[in-house]
């Protein structure tokens, strides 16, 4: 399937990113981190906790501009980046639907989003305030906000963390459904190998801090055929290739 509007791949080439702590101690978070995500591909950035995955996403989102290096984002007619943050980050004083629509440019605020709310099971709660939602529903709303913008690239920062396994896996399937309906270049940060194997076309494995790419793991199987048997085979070959990660 031809992804909507995606033309160029995501190219990342960060030479160095250093944090300075309150006491003035320099901590190198990223060093010579370079990778590429092909257009329309779902990629996962996998690495140990605290290795600089979130930092990488923040740089790509333009939230952190204090680094050495460069990156290139895919373009499309909307030209937008969408993000799903670790926390849902919905505005508590706006309803779920207002939150989703506020992410859209003014001209498209009133477009029909019924398909999206239906696909994510949010139809009955679209007029509720975030305080009235469970974490799972709030996460779905954050996904809805991201997909509504029809972005050129979607960046997800551990969007299923701190959910119970059942809810998390339901949400993973929902994400897959909606992503297959409107495929877009996506980069998801995770430290969960199973999650990465289930969702992605390509896993980019990062080292501990300062993060650089250890290697790639491509999953060429279609997602529908990744049943439990296949998944455990995948996990085995992954742990053979990256014995230190699992």
């Amino acid at each position: 399937m031809q992804p909507v509007g995606a033309a160029a791949p995501l190219r990342v080439d960060i030479a160095e990113k250093t944090f300075r702590s309150a006491e003035g101690i320099a901590v190198k978070a990223l060093e010579n981190l370079s990778f590429e995500v092909r257009q329309g591909e779902f990629a996962c950035l996998l690495g140990p906790s605290g290795c600089g995955k979130t930092t990488t996403l923040r740089i790509l989102l333009g939230l952190d501009q204090d680094f050495k290096g460069s990156f290139e984002l895919p373009t499309s007619e909307t030209g937008r980046i969408a993000a799903v943050f670790q926390e849902p980050t919905l505005l508590p004083w706006r309803t779920l639907e207002q939150n989703v629509r506020l992410g859209l440019p003014k001209a498209r605020r009133n477009i029909d989003l019924d398909w999206l709310f239906k696909a994510l099971g949010l139809v009955s709660v679209r007029s509720l305030f975030p305080a009235e939602l469970s974490l799972g529903l709030a996460r779905r709303a954050a996904l809805a906000r991201a997909f509504a913008t029809e972005p050129a690239i979607l960046l997800l920062d551990e969007p299923f963390v701190s959910l119970d396994e059942q809810t998390a896996s339901r949400l993973r399937y929902l994400l897959l459904d909606i992503w297959s309906a409107r495929p877009t270049t996506a980069l998801m940060v995770t430290h969960n190998v199973r999650e990465a194997l289930m969702l992605s076309d390509r896993i980019i494995v990062l080292s501990a801090r300062p993060a650089h790419v250890l290697g790639y793991f491509d999953v060429r199987l279609p997602r529908q055929s990744r049943n439990p048997q296949v998944m455990s085979d995948l996990a085995r070959s992954f742990s053979q290739k990256f014995p230190d990660v699992m």
């Binding site: 969408a82 980050t89 506020l102 992410g103």
Partner: peptide
């Protein structure tokens, strides 16, 4: 976090004022 969300989703100045700043200062 709300400011960063508004940055990523390209809120206009007016939207930032109405939906991010004012409710937090209320």
């Amino acid at each position: 976090r709300y400011g960063e969300m508004a940055f990523v989703y390209r809120f206009s100045r007016l939207d930032r004022f109405r939906h991010i700043l004012l409710p937090q200062l209320q």
